[in-house]
Amino acid sequence: MYPTPEPLVQVRGLCKTYTQGHWWQSQFQIHALDNVNLSVSRDSTLALVGESGSGKTTLAMCLVGLEQPDAGEIWFEGENLLAPSTREPVSVRREIQLIFQDSAGALNPRMSAAQIIEEPLLLRRHGRSKERLELVSEMMARVGLSTRWKDRLPHEFSGGQRQRVAIARALVLRPKLLILDEALAGLDLSIQGQIVNVLLDLQASEALSFLYISHNLELIGHFVGEIAVMYQGSIVEQASPSELFAHPQHPHTQALLASMPVLKLAYSAHNEG
C-alpha cells in the first residue's frame, strides 16, 4: 500500500489532545491531532498546509520529540520512535531537525554565528575543535554565508541571514529529515527565493527529506513532491501539486485554494533569464 522503497518517516494514527481550563474551571478538550496518517519518502519533500490552529506545528513537535503524543506510532527508518527502543532516543532525534519561523527567537542572542552552528557538534562531542571549526566554515559556505561573519551576533544579521544560520545549525549534524515550520514566512520575496534555492541545492547534493509546513501555497509548486492538507487535526487530502491544484477534492482544500492571492497578471519573464 505504501510506495517502495520504505518511506523515511511513517506516522500512523497519531493523536494528541490538549485539555484547557484548570481544575476549578470547566474543562474542555482540543483534539490537536486526530488520527493522523502521513508518510515522507526519502530525498523528497512533503508539504503540510492548513490554516492556523489545524495542528501542523503540533505534528512537527511530536516528530522531533518536543511533545509526547497520546496515541499512535511514528516510524523512522524502521524504528518506532514512541516505543521504548533499544536505540537511545537522542541518537534518532539528531536525524530529525526542526527550523522555526522566528529565527530571532531560536538563536541565542549572546552567541556568535560560529558558536551557534558549532553547538550541536559540541553536544555530540563530535571531533576535535579544529575539525569542528572546519565543519562550521563548510556549513556556512553551503548556506551562502560569508565565513567573515563567523563572529557576528544574531542581531547583526538580517532576517534572511539569520534563517540561514538556523539552517546551517540544523544541517551540521547531517540529519535525514529537516522540518521547516513556516521557515519562509515573513521573509522578503527575493530572500525567500534565495533560501529555497539553498534548500534545493542541499537536497540535490545529499540525502535529505523536507517536511515543509506552511499556511501558504505559493512556493509549493517549485518545491514540493506531495502536498498534505490538514484541517482540524486530521489530514483531509494528500496529492501531488498538479493534481491538488487542478482537482481539489475536499471542500476545505477548495476554500484554501480560492483564498490564495496569485499573480495572474504576471509579467512573463520567467523564460527570459
Binding site: N197, P241, G273
Partner: peptide, 21 residues
C-alpha cells in the same frame, strides 16, 4: 520575477527548479 507564478502550481516543469532571485 521572484514572485511565485500561478503556472508554477500546476505545471510540473517548475518542480525542483530554482527560483529567480
Amino acid at each position: 520575477q521572484c514572485a511565485p507564478q500561478q503556472s508554477a502550481r500546476t505545471d510540473s516543469k517548475y518542480r525542483g527548479r530554482r527560483l529567480a532571485c
